[in-house]
Simulated assay, not measured.
Amino acid sequence: MTSHITPVILSGGSGTRLWPMSRAAKPKQLLALTSTDSMLQLTARRSSDDTRFDRPLVVGNARHAEMIEEQLEAISLPAASLVLEPAGRNTAPAIALAALLTRPDAILLVMPSDHVINDVSAFRAAIETAVPLVEDGWLVTFGIAPTAPDTGYGYIRRGETLAPGIERVEKFVEKPDRATAEAYLAEGCYSWNGGIFLFRADAYLVELGRHAPEMLAAVRESLDKGVRQGQRVYPEEAAFKAAPSDSIDYAVMEKADRVAVVPVDMGWSDVGSWDALHEIAPRDEAGNAEHGEIVSIDTSNCLLRTDGPLVAAIGVKDLIVIATGDAVLIMPRGSSQDVKRAIEKLKASGHVTLDRSSL
């Protein structure tokens, strides 16, 4: 019998790199940035085949509960459980919540809620490649085919072939400098670390208990003391906050022995910046990606986006212009990682623009 897979969608991020549209009140994953669907809805649709996938389990921020439920119900894919974190503790505790709420032998497909995958068939084929090893207790990650020597991603060095299309992870590598990234691409045995995983719930919990026992104990206690209201699960706050904040990569994947990677070219992007959105967005003959009420004259290679006032761009090039009802961001293309400098200044001044919805 074919094993069903439980999608685990991680929706706790704040997405501040896409300010001013992404805010604490309505972060990136709840916005429609690349289609008429939100990023969360697109993620849920990737695992919507009920012959292979169960209903998703979503781990999110308690303040977004209603928006998450509304968006999933709008596409007829309501969550089997919506686990509402009382505080952000990074991905390892979030995944532990999901693993403890499912059957021990459940296969979990862990996906961030805010990534783009254009070739869903390639993604699903990669999942099928991984399933036999997962059923045997391996932890599997998906290695993204690198398209450039990008310094913004972690890398995975692939080792011996374990089965057709799947290799042992030799090591995880931190974000490299440019020269190192170029060397990785030239070597040909490195993939980007896209943060998507497939494993049995019990296999993950065994490794978490081995390498981060205090984290597992805190998460377990938070559920034991927590509350369930319909499909919503509320872990107890004090116990959950006692869990160390750590990513699955550091807490488990870099330390476990049986870790494999499926290299896959699936049109992936983490849409981690406005430059990344410009790169994947449809562009006109002048290289402009436009959304909303825009007038552009003698303008080229710009990202122009508004959900508020009309934006007129005349005689400019290589700019990012983002306008909402209460904020405007303007900067050169190639500088979008510097949005964090604006965020830091706004935080220092206690500016409310960071926290409220812009829509």
Results as ranks from 00 to 15, higher is better:
128 E>F: 00
173 V>M: 05
144 I>N: 11
177 D>K: 07
76 S>W: 08
74 A>Q: 13
164 P>H: 02
86 P>N: 05
165 G>S: 07
187 E>T: 13
186 A>K: 11
173 V>G: 00
165 G>Q: 09
179 A>K: 14
152 G>Y: 05
180 T>I: 10
92 A>K: 06
153 Y>T: 06
108 L>C: 07
118 N>L: 12
168 R>P: 00
100 L>P: 01
169 V>L: 06
108 L>V: 03
142 F>L: 10
182 E>Y: 03
135 E>N: 07
100 L>N: 02
164 P>W: 09
142 F>P: 09
139 L>H: 10
173 V>C: 09
111 M>V: 09
149 P>C: 12
75 I>V: 13
161 T>A: 11
147 T>A: 13
86 P>L: 07
147 T>K: 14
188 G>N: 05
94 A>S: 09
185 L>C: 09
153 Y>H: 12
78 P>L: 06
118 N>D: 15
77 L>W: 04
167 E>I: 00
100 L>F: 03
188 G>P: 05
132 P>T: 07
119 D>I: 04
170 E>P: 01
96 A>F: 01
145 A>W: 11
114 D>P: 03
135 E>Y: 01
126 A>G: 12
96 A>P: 01
100 L>G: 02
159 G>L: 00
122 A>T: 07
123 F>V: 08
175 K>C: 09
129 T>N: 03
127 I>H: 02
149 P>H: 12
179 A>Q: 13
122 A>H: 11
111 M>F: 10
92 A>E: 09
109 L>Q: 13
125 A>V: 05
161 T>V: 13
159 G>H: 03
118 N>Q: 12
119 D>H: 07
147 T>R: 14
171 K>T: 14
144 I>W: 11
133 L>D: 08
134 V>C: 03
162 L>V: 15
74 A>I: 09
101 L>T: 05
171 K>I: 06
187 E>H: 15
155 Y>M: 03
132 P>A: 11
189 C>K: 12
118 N>A: 14
95 I>C: 03
103 R>K: 13
172 F>S: 00
171 K>S: 15
136 D>P: 00
141 T>Q: 11
186 A>G: 01
135 E>A: 07
165 G>M: 04
181 A>K: 12
149 P>G: 13
165 G>T: 04
158 R>F: 04
117 I>Y: 08
74 A>Y: 05
166 I>L: 07
170 E>C: 02
82 L>W: 14
79 A>R: 03
148 A>S: 15
85 E>T: 14
161 T>N: 12
149 P>T: 09
156 I>Q: 05
150 D>T: 09
87 A>S: 14
173 V>R: 06
136 D>S: 14
184 Y>T: 03
94 A>Y: 02
83 V>C: 12
108 L>R: 06
93 P>F: 12
184 Y>D: 06
144 I>E: 14
186 A>I: 01
111 M>R: 10
131 V>K: 13
175 K>E: 12
185 L>E: 11
77 L>R: 15
111 M>C: 11
131 V>F: 01
176 P>W: 05
105 D>S: 12
129 T>A: 03
149 P>V: 10
178 R>C: 00
117 I>D: 03
97 L>R: 01
